[in-house]
Amino acid sequence: MTPTDPLYIGILFLTGAFTGVISGLLGVGGGFIMFPIQYWLLQETGLHPDLAIRIALGTSLFVILLNAISVTLKYQRKQAVLWKQATLMGIFGSAASFGGAAVASYLSAAVLSTTFGIVVILGALKTYTTPAVKENEEISSNKLSYAFAGILIGFFSGLLGIGGGVIGIPIMLIFLRFDMLKAVGTSAAVIIFTSFGGSLGYIVNGWGQPELPPYSLGYINLFNWVLLAVPGSLAARRGADIAHIINPEYLKHLFVLLMVYVGLEMIGII
């Protein structure tokens, strides 16, 4: 298979569209969808698995950046983005995401991936018992908590090529006392920062590497990026529209199912 094959192009285009809907609906980046599909396709073109996995991670993060901007603008119109908190988490998250990308570029992520999966599943169980709508409850004002949350979200974002929403939303719901809609909107804003930092990390660490495919910017492949990002950014707006008419409890349950799936995938069970 080559990147110009209709099957290759069609799979990435549909993947981008589906990822966009999930991103807009749940405030996640969708890297857990894009990454494995890209990883498989890139290997089918003849790339070595070690190179294919880094390109899949880096390109996914760069797609997530565009999706996150699109989703955030939608949620901002509904006043569901808390910018002060998002910026604080985002600044720390961006730096941590750059570091996570550097680790992923040189070390195996197998152990950390399994740990991440376990943490996500435990978070899903706790999220399930956390109300989606918080009545008369003030969100956290502890700046240190937001900084720590940003570091956790950012590091795993860069390491595993995800936006960080599968970690960020449970943290916002459980520890920072957000309601579901504001957690989703603010998560999308944080992902702008983390995906930018992670993308930069994959560009820097992949710059000048041998055997990169055509149209590569470090470990980011611009050909794949266009095929994923164009339908993804358009579909993300539709997902955000749907999120505002769904009962927050239903939205939370859908997110919990997604978290369990991601956790099992990261552990390697799926």
Rank of each mutant, 00 (worst) to 15 (best):
V63R: 02
S199A: 08
G168I: 04
G158W: 13
S140W: 06
L88T: 11
P231E: 01
A95V: 15
A189Q: 02
L222G: 02
S108Y: 07
Q43I: 11
A149G: 13
M172C: 04
N67Q: 10
A101D: 02
Q85Y: 08
S141H: 15
A235I: 09
L228P: 13
T115Q: 00
L264D: 06
Y106W: 11
I270D: 00
I174V: 13
G30Y: 07
K134I: 05
F148M: 14
L173W: 06
A236C: 05
L222V: 08
Q79K: 14
L65D: 00
R177W: 03
I121A: 05
V256E: 01
I64E: 02
I9C: 04
M259S: 08
V28R: 06
L41C: 04
A68E: 05
N142A: 04
A17V: 14
L12N: 03
A17G: 11
F13H: 08
L66T: 14
M34Q: 14
L73D: 00
I270S: 02
F155K: 09
T194D: 00
M259D: 03
T4M: 06
L257F: 15
G29K: 04
L160P: 13
I203D: 00
L65N: 03
V230L: 14
A52G: 03
I64V: 15
G27A: 08
D241F: 11
Y128D: 01
I267Y: 11
V71T: 15
I191W: 12
I174W: 12
K143I: 13
G29M: 03
G168F: 05
F156G: 05
L264S: 14
A101T: 09
V120S: 03
T15D: 06
Q43W: 01
G93Q: 03
F18W: 14
F32A: 11
V190R: 00
I171V: 15
V262F: 12
G93E: 05
L112T: 04
G20T: 09
S145Q: 10
N221D: 05
N136M: 11
I269S: 05
A236D: 04
T2Q: 09
F32C: 04
G218W: 13
I267K: 07
Q79Y: 12
S187E: 02
W207R: 09
G150I: 02
L222C: 02
N67C: 07
N247F: 08
L112C: 02
K143N: 06
I267D: 02
F148S: 10
L12F: 14
Y261G: 01
A110T: 15
G239T: 02
V81F: 07
G99P: 05
F116Q: 01
A17E: 01
G29C: 03
L51M: 10
F155H: 12
K84Q: 07
I118G: 00
I203E: 00
I69T: 02
S60R: 13
L222F: 08
N205S: 13
L47K: 10
L7Y: 15
A236S: 14
L251I: 06
I174Q: 08
A240S: 13
L42I: 05
I37L: 14
F18N: 03
G206K: 07
L125C: 12
W225E: 07
H48G: 02
S108Q: 12
V256C: 05
K74N: 11
F255L: 12
Y8I: 10
R77Y: 09
A124Q: 12
Y202Q: 01
Y146P: 04
T87N: 07
P6W: 13
S140L: 06
R238H: 11
A102G: 03
I153N: 00
S195K: 11
G263T: 10
I245Q: 07
I9A: 03
D5H: 15
